[in-house]
């Protein structure tokens, strides 16, 4: 393909990426072409799409829900006041520091080193386009869905959870697929929580995608759970998770964790 043809093709695919309509073969082409230094995407097409959105939607008679408006104003004043000195917002440096800390609360680091070598494994292979299209069975139980994920994911990441000081009786595993954006935790001996007061919340540390850890969803553990299989519910795409961290938060979870109660950690690298 000539250079101009290649450039035109990349541009068309880039437009498709922004519009969200690439098919699997086009994604493969996009990946190949975007690796070419001459085909570096810029913001121009994305800006045009954003300008169109702004033009057509700015004058709509839309009103933010009252409750959300309150949350936004309260939330903004919180982080405006806290940042940067008080570091209430969880920053990657803090999470990474937390992961790397050698202090007492993280004495499990050594354990993780052993667990990581012995039990964790990371397999990243080329992704079959068909597998990217696969949809998890919506009605399957979490346990069945987890088994299906383990059997079908070509890029499965698996790592062991270790509990912190007050949760050192717990054990667990996390499995995750970047390609499928799907994952599950299998957790044993995690104390039951009162959902009205406190809830567990998963955070996915992916420094490559964002400064903040990605919310992996709020979940409960009941007294009868034994080993609970918890699906990961990440609203945002995760592309290279470095760790999965469980915290205990107020009922309903939080947008930004203060890490007051860190329950468990699973490192993938």
């Amino acid at each position: 393909m000539k250079s101009q043809d290649t450039s035109d093709r990349f541009e068309e695919l880039e437009a498709g990426r922004i519009l969200g309509d690439l098919i699997p073969s086009e994604v493969q082409d996009w990946k190949i072409l975007s690796a070419n230094p001459g085909n570096q995407a810029d913001l121009s097409l994305e800006l045009v799409a954003a300008a169109l959105d702004a033009e057509f939607l700015a004058n709509e008679d839309t009103v933010l829900p009252e409750e959300l408006l309150k949350k936004l104003h309260n939330g903004i004043s919180e982080f405006v006041n806290a940042e940067p000195e008080n570091a209430v917002i969880v920053r990657p440096a803090r999470w990474q520091g937390l992961l790397a800390s050698s202090k007492a609360a993280w004495s499990i680091a050594a354990l993780f080193a052993i667990l990581f070598i012995a039990k964790s494994f990371v397999e990243k292979t080329s992704v079959d386009p068909e597998s990217l299209m696969a949809t998890a069975p919506e009605k399957a139980s979490s346990s069945e869905a987890r088994k299906t994920l383990i059997s079908k994911a070509g890029d499965l990441i698996q790592s062991e959870f270790g509990g912190t000081e007050n949760y050192n009786q717990m054990s667990g595993t996390v499995v995750w697929s970047d390609a499928l954006q799907e994952g599950y935790m299998s957790l044993t001996n995690l104390p039951a929580n009162d959902p009205g007061a406190k809830q567990y919340q998963l955070w996915i540390v992916d420094p490559g995608r964002d400064e903040k850890p990605v919310d992996g969803g709020v979940f409960d553990i009941s007294a009868n759970d034994g080993t609970a299989i918890i699906p990961i519910r990440n609203p945002l795409m995760v592309t290279n998770p470095q760790a999965f961290v469980i915290t205990l938060e107020q009922s309903g979870g939080v947008v930004v964790s203060k890490q007051e109660i860190v329950v468990a950690l699973a490192k993938t690298s």
Binding site: I23, P24, V27, Q181
Partner: peptide, 14 residues
């Protein structure tokens, strides 16, 4: 993850 449309490339490629 609709069958007719591929999930878009990684966000960090933006």
């Amino acid at each position: 993850r609709r069958p007719q449309f591929e999930p878009l490339p990684d966000a960090d490629s933006l």
